[in-house]
Design a protein around this nucleic acid. Structure first.
Lengths: 71, 71
DNA sequence: CTGTGACTCTAAGTCCGTA
DNA sequence: CTACGGACTTAGAGTCACA
């Protein structure tokens, strides 16, 4: 499974657990809403700096967002 | 501490543990030698796909390369 | 062996909109 | 709310010669 999909899936899961919309999360994390959408679907290939921005916004460690749950 | 520096420091440490030069590692991982140099010094901001290439070359999980050892 | 500056070219990342 | 499109600016990818 692609890193981008692992990352995106984890982002979506954690975002939903927090009860946030893509827009709300994007605003809180300082990331464009359309970019959040693309990342969650595994279409984007974010840099380390951006990836950490996601992690901070979700209040988790970056390594957590890269953990493959299955497959 | 910056993610890029954490990443770079871990790459350098693991590369040296394997007894490889930047050139040797770069060749094995399919990454340019000078790019390896830049990453190890935290000057580059690689994407997830690139970061995973480093991980595969070092035979570790990507999340491993993002673990902060201290501070 | 490694660091560095400079370079081209592609993709990251933002912002506008619409369904 | 989210997917998806186009257009755009910036920064990363990838490489080189030289120190």
């Amino acid at each position: 499974m692609d890193v981008r999909q692992v990352f995106g899936t984890n982002v979506r899961r954690l975002r939903l657990e927090k009860g946030l919309s893509q827009e709300e999360f994007g605003f809180a994390a300082g990331i464009d809403r359309t970019y959040v959408s693309g990342v969650e679907r595994g279409l984007r290939n974010p840099t380390l700096l951006l990836a950490e921005k996601f992690a901070r916004g979700l209040d988790v460690e970056l390594s957590e967002l890269l953990r493959r749950s299955e497959c």
